[in-house]
Design a protein around this nucleic acid. Sequence first.
DNA 1: ATGTGACTTTGAGTCCGTC
DNA 2: AGACGGACTCAAAGTCACA
Lengths: 76, 76
Amino acid sequence: MNKAVLSVLGRRIRQKRTQNGWTQEDLAENAGIDRSYIGGVERGERNLTFTVLCQICEALECDLAELTSGIPGNLE
Amino acid sequence: MNKAVLSVLGRRIRQKRTQNGWTQEDLAENAGIDRSYIGGVERGERNLTFTVLCQICEALECDLAELTSGIPGNLE
DNA sequence: ATGTGACTTTGAGTCCGTC
DNA sequence: AGACGGACTCAAAGTCACA
């Protein structure tokens, strides 16, 4: 279960990012986070902290609730 | 800003918990987390990871989006 | 029932790469 | 453009005693 929620979150972040037409490097720079770290997050390999998640949301210009709806529980 | 989002999150978690009529000890046990750790989260002193946040949500039987709506940005 | 300080171990997060 | 690795630092995880 633990790994599953991170995969879902990563997938949604990636979706948002590509919808914005950004590269991982773009997002990393806007969020003030290392580019390799963003990659790990999108692949569901990183267990990020709440503040970092907020930084990513801020960079993506989206509400956190948009990324977390149905979590945990209804993992599609 | 970083500390602010943690305070908001903590306040919402505490609100949910008391609405359920639970003590910190109850929530801690249901989530499989130490009681004092829950206290720190509710006070906004702990920058928790996504998996821990999910554990708390699962214990509270609430959607993560419910706790994170308007974050980041519209911090009431 | 909760706040708080102190503490050790683990993993978050950075920075350098290569493919 | 992104996946992935190694080596590193410092903060988060996790626990406890006491107020």
